[in-house]
């Protein structure tokens, strides 16, 4: 029988994969992908705890996380397109234009 701990361990592993992606990648689109991975790992933890306790609040929070992720993608992709129009690249190292 799979208990709560296995789901939490899986969620932690996925969150660490996403965090490594955020720390390691230099491309902004890849940073968005890594953020999606982290949000999904949080969703797994919420759904597992909700199923374990028989309480539906965890699933509600997972729904709101999905809504936040959808709006984040909409706004973030618009910003990426504007940035690509101006810069011609999505590399984070080329964005240091405010460096004195």
């Amino acid at each position: 029988m799979i208990g709560l701990n296995e789901y939490l361990i899986l969620s932690g592993i996925l969150f660490s994969i996403g965090l490594v992606g955020v720390l390691r990648r230099k491309n902004l689109l890849m940073l968005f992908f890594a953020t999606e991975i982290m949000l999904n790992s949080a969703n797994i933890a919420f759904a597992a705890i909700s199923g374990h306790y028989g309480d539906l609040s965890g699933q509600m929070f997972a729904f709101f996380i999905i809504a936040v992720a959808a709006s984040e993608v909409a706004v973030g992709l618009g910003l990426l397109i504007v940035l690509y129009k101006k810069q011609g690249t999505l590399d984070l190292d080329n964005l240091a234009v405010m460096k004195g």
Partner: peptide, 26 residues
């Protein structure tokens, strides 16, 4: 995994919103 936990509606929403909407947007 969501279906396995018993959150059926959350699994369907994950399929529709994430795979259908967000990845299509990407």
């Amino acid at each position: 995994l969501f279906f396995l936990v018993g959150a059926d509606f959350l699994g369907v929403v994950q399929l529709v919103v994430y795979v259908g909407a967000i990845m299509a947007l990407y």
